[in-house]
Design a protein around this nucleic acid. Structure first.
Lengths: 254, 254
DNA sequence: CGGCAAATTGAAAAGACTCAAAGTAAGTGG
DNA sequence: CCACTTACTTTGAGTCTTTTCAATTTGCCG
């Protein structure tokens, strides 16, 4: 899976932040970029450490997480080939704001903080990419916040299953989908902001309601639209409805 | 409160994204920037609408929110003079990702999407600011996520009170602080991802535990360190501790 | 087969949400 | 100045969700 030889400039060319830079520049960056190989469950960096620079994933899959004092873990995102890590401390200042742990054996290439700064000064198109990527991260975070604030675990689980179906699913019987569930209940739980037992029960609920079928590691969603209906997804709220604190804004929204 | 005359370039000069641009450029932007006055509870834009451009707050206070289908509201942030709104859709694409509602009568100045693009091309230092601001938003969001995932309402309330104390508090009896609570229970609740009754009870709990004192709208925190102790704040977790799903990463973290 | 991590299930308790009722506070108009 | 309205707050009771702990059970791998 992990290639032994690695074309660094190739990785950069296909990455979300370095895409679009001239070939010579890519090669140049590649020349002083460092390579780090991570075993499964190895940590690239930890929340609170001083930020050395940023990383681009060459291969594998990593998760960015925050952990509570009691030892619970909340997954913020899962990143794969081409993704950039640690943009936040590099461009916003401060230490790393999350920890990064490899979900599979992974290879990342690292670029020093000062090198990045120099590069951006020389190539403003890089900053466009950075802004775009950061903006999307904000949007993604906002969705996670909404999810945690408004939806119960069952609904969050459905949302997660639907995401997996979209990424790895293959059609099944017309309106259905099927895919492999590679993660454990605990791993799912930390994505949903819950604990393994609750996820286990939630899967049972969905099974009882005939919304999913479980055969070992494979999940079958017999009726995709039906499952979507259950997730409580925000079909966009129309403007002007009174949705605020008590009577406060009655008649006041445009 | 809201000045009738408004020096737009003055606002821009002191804003988080336009700060540092040459005076002539600021004046130039100001020339084609539009002005919009908002009454309390008026909406600047709604989640899901097409993004027209970005806004800079000249005066007043607004909140950015997401709302659920059932009508609950989750506040993502509160922004004041100098803050930029709608960076996410402008730089990341897509529609507005949150709604913006005025908490007090406010004035915002708006800059068209295409104008922004042109400006950034001409003045890359603008993109540095944008990246910095977006990066900080991500960090802030991550903190909110952690809060929602790990802490109960009482702890989130304490966190919020501590933030208010930091912003508006005046010293009280040595280790204490006092400040005015301007928002209603409902407003606080939507910041915490809860409902008014629960906030009301949470305040009572804190009062019973002698951690706070309420006199009308003024809050007294007699012992700041004691309250801090209650909030379950993440004193940074040290690297290498086993905090993950069951036994999965035992011995594997660096 | 044994050993072990993962998953399930039950039962109890804590936390959060909802609804309903009653209390408080500030502002308005007589 | 008082009664009245209106918005906001508090409190109680019932219910649902989520967490926690403990006890099994499942499934995998050597």
């Amino acid at each position: 899976v992990t290639p032994l030889s690695l074309d660094k400039s190739d990785v950069l060319r296909q990455s979300e932040v370095f895409a679009g830079l001239p070939e010579i520049v890519l090669r140049n960056i590649a020349a002083y970029a460092t390579v780090r190989r991570l075993a499964r469950a190895e940590m690239l960096y930890a929340e609170g450490e001083d930020a050395w620079g940023l990383f681009v994933i060459a291969s594998g899959e990593v998760r960015t997480v925050r952990q509570s004092v009691e030892g619970r873990e909340q997954v913020l995102s899962t990143e794969t080939r081409g993704a950039a890590l640690a943009l936040v401390p590099v461009f916003g200042g401060g230490p790393y704001f999350s920890s990064v742990i490899a979900d599979t054996p992974s290879v990342v290439i690292g670029i020093n903080r000062t090198d990045i700064t120099r590069l951006c000064e020389k190539h403003p198109e890089l900053l466009w990419n950075v802004s775009r990527v950061l903006a999307r991260k904000v949007r993604y975070c906002a969705e996670l916040i909404e999810s945690l604030a408004f939806r119960n675990v069952d609904q969050r689980l459905v949302h997660h299953l639907l995401c997996l179906a979209e990424q790895h699913g293959v059609p099944y019987n017309g309106r259905g989908v099927t895919f492999e569930l590679t993660s454990t209940r605990s791993e799912i739980a930390s994505r949903l902001g819950s604990v393994r037992e609750v996820v286990s029960r939630a899967l049972s609920h969905l099974h009882e309601k005939k919304l999913i079928e479980l055969r070992g590691r494979t999940v079958i969603i017999p009726d995709l639209p039906a499952l979507r209906g259950f997730s409580g997804e925000s079909a966009h709220v129309t403007r002007g409805r009174d949705l605020s604190h008590g009577q406060l804004t009655r008649n006041a929204a445009i």
